[in-house]
Amino acid sequence: MNMPMVADATRNLRGVSCPMNLVYTKVELAKLHSGQILEVILDDGAPVNNVPGSALKEGHTIISQEQLADSAWAVLIRKK
């Protein structure tokens, strides 16, 4: 079992398509300090297939991604 993580900020990006979901993810990450955690809610499909990978490429850490009841995904990102 993973330790439950508490996000420092959360952003609901349901209904926001690529690439603006990544733009908003980057905006939220820019507001945080290194090591803080952002939770983004991404739609299933292209959003969840792309945004976490892009955040990873920029050096952030993907802590977890979990599918919710409405098929959207809750993704926890630790800022680099």
Binding site: P19, M20, L22, V23, Y24, K26, V27, A30, K57, E58
Partner: peptide
């Protein structure tokens, strides 16, 4: 930042080297 600002400059913001 306004939504219009973020959308206008999204292709810059997406660049890792540029960003917000």
């Amino acid at each position: 930042l306004s939504e219009a600002y973020l959308e206008r400059y999204s292709r810059h913001i997406l660049l890792q080297d540029v960003g917000v």
